[in-house]
């Protein structure tokens, strides 16, 4: 818990935050609308006697009262997919449309990439990329189980991503759900803060800046980018977005989010960030009894 002390100045009700971080997280699933409506998924869970509660902020998020969400009829049919509640947020904010070209720069193990396909009615092209070949096999397994036929899977370093395999030269929308120090997953992985160092955080932030810059370059003028992490560190969140505001042609956009959240920070550790970063969202574990997340929405050009 000690590395989290540094966030005391920016988190309201810090004691409630620390207390929430020490509680284990329940099992949430997302309804895979490629294969079933939310009503059908819910009826299937009811029929097999699995207890659940539906999230009030999104009709496709269900909290299960079981320790093995992967061993249900609903899961076998691909009606539901185990996905942390807050990790459903970035694709919803990106809001991809059927027929579009969408890039998921760091896609493995595929929860968000398949959610993008579902939001597009599985029509269009979702290029699901990851630099880690081993993790790509998990993505492919999930994509096939969930019946996502709009996915094209690539294995490149997102920082210098090439669209050469394809016939088009820009995406309509891009999701950068960046590799990060994962502080926000502490309720799922209590040892996530072991070995936390400032050096590691700064090295990860360098990678994040590289990926987000490339995403802005690879997205068409007027296109949308969502940058997200599951960590609290402003160095990996607002500072990364601030960096691309200074180096690329883009701006931060406002968005609606029905989950309780806090605005992005504009000052941290002696650094000031662009005022527009207040439009980003910080989701803390104590606010909605979830994991932690950061989400920013950007528009290219204009």
């Amino acid at each position: 818990m000690e590395p989290l002390e540094r966030y005391r100045p920016i988190i309201d009700d810090f004691e409630a935050f620390l207390e929430a971080c020490q509680r284990p997280l329940g099992n949430a699933v997302r309804v895979n609308t490629i294969k079933a409506s939310a009503d059908r998924a819910v009826a299937t869970l009811e029929e097999e006697g699995v207890g659940f509660e539906r999230a009030d902020w999104n009709p496709n998020v269900i909290r299960l009262e079981t320790d093995s969400p992967g061993s249900t009829w609903s899961s076998f049919h691909g009606f539901t997919h185990g996905q942390e509640e807050v990790s459903v947020v970035p694709p919803v904010v990106l809001d991809p449309q059927p027929g579009e070209r969408v890039w998921d720069a760091c896609a493995a193990p595929g929860g968000k990439a398949t959610q993008l396909a579902a939001l597009m009615d599985d029509r269009g092209t979702v290029v699901a990329n990851d630099s880690n070949l081993g993790r790509l096999s998990a993505l492919r397994f999930n994509a096939e189980r969930l019946g996502a036929t709009a996915l094209a899977v690539t294995n490149q370093d997102a920082r210098n991503y090439s669209l050469k395999p394809f016939d088009f030269d820009a995406f309509d929308r891009s999701l950068v759900d960046a590799p990060c120090s994962c502080e926000g997953t502490i309720r799922k992985n209590p040892d996530t803060l072991d070995g936390w160092t400032e050096e590691h955080m700064h090295s990860v932030a360098g990678v994040q800046k590289g990926i987000l810059r490339r995403a802005i370059q690879a997205t068409r003028e007027g296109g949308t980018i969502v940058y997200s992490t599951c960590t609290f560190a402003p160095e990996e969140n607002e500072a990364v977005v601030n960096h691309v505001l200074e180096t690329e042609d883009c701006r931060v956009r406002e968005f609606d989010l029905a989950l309780e959240h806090s605005p992005g920070v504009t000052e941290w550790d002696g650094e000031a960030y662009d005022e527009s970063l207040e439009r980003a969202a910080r989701i803390y574990p104590h606010q909605n009894d979830t994991g932690g997340f950061f989400v920013a929405k950007l528009e290219v050009g204009a």
Binding site: L136, R140, A143, E144, G147, A148, T149, A150, L151, A152, V153, T154, N155, P165
Partner: peptide, 8 residues
């Protein structure tokens, strides 16, 4: 096309 996978 030389990539890892398309569709299923």
């Amino acid at each position: 096309l030389e990539i890892e996978a398309i569709g299923m």
